[in-house]
Design a binder for these strands. Structure first.
Length: 1036
RNA sequence: GGGUGAUUAGCUCAGUUGGUAGAGCGCUUCCUUUACACGGAAGAUGUCGGGAGUUCGAGCCUCUCAUCACCCA
């Protein structure tokens, strides 16, 4: 049966993949030797909304290479697949679908909306898993996990409850990154800072009571450059709309310009004139003297830097915006709010966080405006009032200097870093809200130690530095999201009686340091002692307590116990409510009897990364004690993009140590983002996206995979181009043709090809080369140098097997020596088999197809055994040297022929001068193939070369091609002289080194020996060349 | 502003404890020779970003400058 001309990837790949699946080749433990070590890789779960892009293709290919390699080596392997529920991304997809029907999320109940998402998932989710099969990824699909599965949900809730009980999780009012589009908090990592064109406005804050001071500016030498009397302090801001929430103006403590007015009050120049708020001028290290005016307005609730300043100085933080980042429209009239605020600023009234949070400092004229509209309105109002700092406008168009230049407001145009939501692409608003946090400081140490102590290795090493830098400065992790799709936080709040039996309102702020410590004590000792918790009763008449539990029932049990302890009666009726407890009391009054005890669950869901942090063990059935968990946890290698080192890798490290008390894997292989051939990020707008599936259609999965492997240099930039993929498709065809060569020569293909006992130099040589490449490939894969493995296999297959071995075998295969022929046939089949085996992890499809051409095989290639022979066993040094000599001679003859324009087909005679015994035997052993490949007619021994002879210097003798008439003497002299010049440089270097006593003293012996040997060889070659030039010169 | 990395052939990139530079693609010339034109043969191209230092010896180590990229402010 004749082979097809090329491998038809399009039709073969699905057929082969189906065969693998049918054979259970990807199941955990396939091809495992008895009592084998395990090798586990957890697939970084793609978003359930995801499609296979080139980054996945790269990432998954590397994992598949390792898995296939380890499986063939007989490890007990598991490649665990799965999908991430991807909170925002998934909710967004379904909301978009609703929008097409003219519906909104809020048209549905939470339950109904979540049901819609599950519906969507059943139909469209997880497309990527089918796409993964196209690139040959062999995962244990039956084990595919989903971060919203019931068992996974159990794991998430259990971890939350445990961590809560250990005091690792707390709720607090903090400044968070608020996404006004999705109306949820997001983590720092989900914010992209992008530099945009922006403006900086300069405004005057008048000093209270019309006070004035001497404002003096000096240059570097202390000379006065400006002196004027001012009744204001100028501030510069990029966000005028937040002026309404200012709590102070800060200057640097060493700033002499403002020293006279520190401690004084100034007026926020916006809002109704009668209620202008006065705020203090304070000092803080934060303002930079040279930036803007050197004075910074402090708006603690809407800026991260200001937040720190405000916390340090006890400045109130007024929240100005609603969840859509529009100016607040709730609360009391501005007049009343402003009066209270003023009392606070004057120190006449105490305040607490909750009180400040409730106050709306937005004057009526701005209420309800979008933040950007509000910005314009504020600027206009201030400018109209003459409180903008003014500067001279640009000259008139005719360029003449006017007598009275027009004065315009001072607005600097500059680049401003602005935070954007990575999903929503809208400007993130810092907002002061109640959120849940993981106190990462408490769980970070084991994760740091793992890497510090080398238990977990990050590759490339630079990743470790980045890892340390981030984890050593880690911020609390905000884990609550105001979404519907996700794991809802398992915390209920319920009404409980006070110890004295009365009903009061008791709010514990576990966010601040003191009460958190107390809270921990409380948890350790007595759940019921609210005094230990540092709680305090307020006037509201409602006492509530927080209950963290794995289920509603457990929460109710906890609540009931509190009631039992305090009232002596255990209640059994509960009333789940969704509204604010205050509203509940409006409805039911203060008597819960008959209605049940009011309780409500925190509506927020957990950050997606909280659940994916549990991936390494959640996928194996934890918290259940499954055999898989015992066997495959902890895993071995994590392969993932550098971009999620913090998002995911660091969190898995922390969570795994916190929950399992073990590191989740011993090696983290980080790679960069996949870029296009020019190094640009791929994006739809740029139009430079390479679709891996299109590449698979065009060139086959193997070509794409080989390209991926070949690119995967540690720490390297990943630039992919179609030309490259095409090149490796050609490589596949080359391999294919090696087999069609074997078919053509009718070499038996039993399928049972064992290592032959070789007598022929040629066969000894290629067997040795095979052993060398096996060692190279294993060494490369052991150290995750996929590129080295791929390149070694490419060079072996094409450069050794196809270019030389197959060519060399032709005379034997067509020759009369039956023993030599049989040996060569057996060797050839064995070598080709080895190539298939070693190439299989990178190019699984074509190798499996070629493997299947044999008459019979014990197994599919995917579960064939990986070789273990070594170069030490199989390399025959003598055969090695001889074949290299032969290859060298052929190369030189070919080169000389081409230089002299000898027709390719013409056979020419060869002469040799002074051939030594070794050279003679090398020639004798291989004359047939040298003559065939180099197209040599005869070899004659001569004492002197004839006239017009091209010289070929070789070790052990000088060969010559007598080409009288054909040879261009001056050109040949030029060619030889060029070689001599090149040699001269090398000789110079070698002699320089060897003549340097310090080199001989300090260099290692083998280096010196090598240099000496090299020098001798080069000198011999130089002598041969010079003699040749001399002969030619006589001719000319 | 802080951090990390990069700068090597026309292009894209390798180069593993310092021993004197490689691959693929592209390019030039020749060849349809019985595995393969998705091929074969031959060939050209680099003071390894600049400068300084350590060393017998530096693409590799140190310092410095320049440019670029990414991450974090």
């Amino acid at each position: 049966m004749a082979m097809d001309k090329t491998f038809d990837a399009g039709s073969a790949e699905p057929r082969i993949y189906a065969k693998w699946e049918a054979a259970g080749a990807f199941k955990a433990g396939a091809n495992a030797k008895p009592d084998a070590e395990t090798f586990t890789i957890m697939l970084p779960p793609p978003n359930v909304t995801g499609f296979l892009h080139v980054g996945h293709a790269f990432n998954h290919t590397l994992m598949d290479i390792l898995m296939r390699w380890k499986r063939m080596q007989g490890f007990d392997t598991l490649w665990q697949p799965g999908l991430d529920h991807a909170g925002i991304a998934t909710q967004l997809v379904v909301e978009k679908q609703l929008a097409e029907l003219g519906e909104k999320r809020t048209d549905y109940s939470r339950e109904d909306f979540i049901a819609k998402i599950w519906e969507w998932k059943a139909i469209s989710g997880g497309t990527i898993q089918e796409q993964d099969k196209r690139i040959g990824a062999g995962m244990d699909w039956d084990r595919s996990a989903f971060t919203m599965d019931d068992t996974f949900h159990d794991a998430v809730i259990k971890v939350f409850v445990d961590m809560y009980n250990k005091g690792f999780i707390y709720r607090g009012k903090r400044l968070v990154n608020w996404d006004p589009h999705f109306e949820t908090a997001i983590s720092d990592l989900e914010v992209e800072n992008i530099e945009k064109d922006g403006h900086m406005w300069h405004f005057k804050y008048p000093l209270a009571g019309g006070a004035t001071y001497d404002y003096v500016e000096k240059d570097e030498d202390g000379n006065v450059t400006l002196r004027e009397t001012r009744d204001y302090i100028a501030i510069a801001t990029t966000r005028p709309e937040t002026m309404l929430g200012d709590g102070a103006v800060a200057v640097h403590p060493t700033d002499e310009r403002y020293a006279p007015i520190v401690g004084m009050l100034c007026e926020i120049p916006v809002g109704p004139k009668a209620q202008r708020r006065l705020i203090p001028i304070i000092t803080d290290e934060y303002p930079e003297k040279d930036f803007g005016s050197g004075a910074v307005k402090i708006t603690g609730a809407h800026d991260f830097n200001d937040y720190q300043v405000a916390k340090r100085a006890g400045i109130p933080m007024y929240n100005l915006m609603d969840t859509k980042a529009a100016m607040r429209a709730d609360g009391k009239p501005y007049v009343e709010e402003a009066a209270i605020a003023q009392a606070i600023a004057n120190g006449e009234q105490t305040f607490d966080e909750a009180m400040i949070a409730a106050m709306n400092m937005v004057p009526e004229e701005f209420r309800g405006l979008d933040r950007f509209e509000a910005r314009k309105a504020v600027i206009d109002a201030i400018t109209a009032e003459g409180l903008a700092v003014m500067v001279e406008g640009p000259p008139n168009e005719d360029g003449e200097v006017c007598m009275a230049p027009e004065m315009i407001p001072y607005v600097e145009s500059k680049k401003i870093m602005q935070p954007f939501g990575d999903r929503s692409k809208v400007v993130i608003e810092p907002m002061l809200t109640d959120q849940w946090y993981v106190d990462t400081a408490q769980i970070v140490e084991p994760a740091l130690d793992a890497v510090r102590e080398g238990r977990t290795k990050i590759m490339p090493e630079s990743g470790e530095k980045v890892y340390f830098h981030w984890l050593e400065n880690i911020e609390p992790w905000c884990i609550s999201r105001q979404l519907w799709w996700g794991h809802q936080i398992p915390v209920w709040t319920a009404q409980v009686p006070t110890l004295s039996g009365e009903v009061g309102s008791w709010k514990v702020n576990v966010g601040d340091e003191i009460s958190r410590a107390k809270a921990k004590k409380f948890l350790d000792n007595d759940r019921l002692d609210e005094k230990a918790m540092g709680g305090r009763l307020t006037q509201g008449g409602l006492l509530t307590m927080e209950f963290c539990a794995a289920s509603l029932e457990e929460a109710q049990e906890q609540i009931a116990e509190v009631w039992l302890a305090r009232t002596g009666q255990k209640p059994s009726l509960f009333s789940e409510i969704n509204t604010d407890p205050g509203d509940w009391y409006l409805n039911y009054g203060h008597s819960p009897e008959g209605k049940g005890i009011p309780m409500w669950r925190d509506p927020d869901v957990l950050d997606t990364w909280f659940s994916s942090g549990l991936w390494p063990f959640g996928t194996l059935g934890w918290p259940n004690d499954t055999p898989e968990l015992a066997k495959y946890f902890p895993g071995d290698v994590l392969i993932t993009g550098q971009d999620i080192l913090f998002f995911w890798v660091a969190r898995m490290m922390m969570m795994s140590n916190a929950v399992m008390d073990e590191d989740p894997f011993h090696t983290v292989y980080l790679h960069q983002l996949m870029r296009d051939a020019k190094g640009e990020k791929m994006s739809k707008t740029r139009g430079n996206v390479i679709d891996p599936l299109v590449m698979v259609d065009e060139y086959g999965a193997d070509a794409l995979r080989f390209t991926m492997g070949q690119m995967a240099a540690l720490g390297g930039v990943l630039k992919i181009s179609e030309d490259r993929i095409k090149g490796y498709r050609n490589f596949g065809t080359k391999l294919w043709n090696a087999f069609s060569f074997a078919e053509h020569y009718e070499i038996p293909n039993s399928g049972n090809h064992t290592l032959p006992k070789a007598e022929q130099t040629l066969n000894k040589w290629i067997i040795g080369e095979t052993a060398k490449v096996r060692e190279t490939v294993d060494a490369a894969l052991e150290t995750y140098r996929f590129n080295d493995a791929a390149n070694a296999l490419y060079a072996f297959t094409w450069g050794k097997v196809c270019d030389w071995y197959l060519e060399f075998s032709k005379p034997i295969l067509q020759g009369e020596d039956a023993a030599a022929k049989a040996e060569t046939e057996a060797t050839l089949r064995w070598v080709l088999d080895q190539a298939l085996i070693m190439l299989h992890p990178i190019m699984p499809f074509i190798t499996e197809e070629l493997w299947g051409l044999a008459d019979s095989r014990d197994t599919l290639l995917v579960t064939a055994d990986w070789p273990t022979y070594t170069a030490a066993d199989l390399v025959d040094a003598e055969a090695d040297r001889e074949m290299n000599w032969v290859i060298n001679l052929i190369d030189s003859v070919r080169s000389a022929r081409a230089q002299s324009h000898v027709p390719a087909g013409a056979k020419v005679p060869l002469v040799v001068m002074g051939l030594d015994a070794k050279g003679q035997s090398a020639w004798d052993n291989n004359s047939a193939l040298i003559q065939r490949i180099a197209r040599i007619e005869t070899l004659n021994h001569v004492d002197a070369f004839p006239k017009g002879c091209v010289t070929i210097p070789m070790e052990g003798g000088t060969f010559g091609l007598p080409l009288a008439g054909l040879i261009d003497v001056p050109a040949e002299i030029a060619r030889l002289e060029k070689s001599v010049t090149k040699l001269g440089k090398e000789l110079g270097g070698l002699r320089g080194r060897l003549n340097n006593p310090k080199f001989v003293e300090s260099a290692p012996e083998e280096v010196i020996a090598e240099a000496r040997e090299n020098l001798a060889l080069r000198e011999e070659e130089e002598a041969q060349l010079k003699a040749a030039i001399a002969r030619l010169a006589e001719l000319g």
